[in-house]
Design a protein around this nucleic acid. Structure first.
Lengths: 113, 113
DNA sequence: CCAATAGTTAGCTAGTTGGAAAACAATATT
DNA sequence: AATATTGTTTTCCAACTAGCTAACTATTGG
């Protein structure tokens, strides 16, 4: 499970790939259409698609000479869950420290420990 | 350009760095303590901290010879928002296609009539 | 003051990444 | 059959990444 996150976050660390995801969230599209917007060579662009596909973010099928790409639900949700979980943890901690923090802030404003 | 997302997702694409974030969600810690768990050289580990800090995921202050690292709330939330937004879009689309999808699914399952 | 602790800086390396060009299929289209 | 469209494969390259060791700078603690 955790290794998914590796490829997943890696895939989303590139703006071209995020743009593709944003486009695909609107619905499936052929490679050529996806490529049209981006000012890079097609083979380069295809590598990005490959990265997304390897990360499980996207799937594609070829019919005739057209390869149609569509988004894949699972992984997005998984990463969202991870992020949410981290946030929950530290928010819980901040809640537990809330009273103390407030007290410290009142008593020793601007002091180092 | 709000492309913190670049550095952000990049930072989270490494398991060591995700582990650090998971640990820090529990509360701040000095570099040495964070490092202790990971079987890599300290300079290497420090680079990871630097990456997290550059991505804005983390901040640190040095007091005496100890550098204490703590998590930073904003960016995590931002990425979560991005992911959620993508998911919302394609879920909305799937909803619009819902009736059709259901019909197709029914036809595939109930081939016995 | 001396030693241990906690980071930091510098320099090296192997491997990965994002980009390009060129040439090659495989399908439409006319 | 000839051409245009749509990918695919191959090969190359520069820049970046994650890792290492070694040597160095503070800052405690005794």
């Amino acid at each position: 499970m955790t290794n998914h996150l590796n490829a997943f976050f890696g895939a989303l660390s590139d703006p071209t790939r995020r743009a593709v995801i944003e486009r695909l969230a609107q619905g499936p599209a052929p490679v050529s259409e996806l490529h049209a917007v981006h000012d890079i060579a097609l083979p380069t662009f295809l590598k990005h698609i490959k990265v997304l596909e390897t990360a499980g973010l996207v799937r594609s099928e070829k019919s005739g000479r057209v390869r149609t790409v569509h988004i894949e639900a699972g992984p997005l949700a998984e990463a969202e869950t991870w992020l949410k979980s981290q946030r929950r943890h530290w928010e819980a901690r901040l809640d537990r420290l809330g009273v103390l923090a407030e007290r410290m802030s009142r008593n020793e404003k601007g002091q180092d420990q």
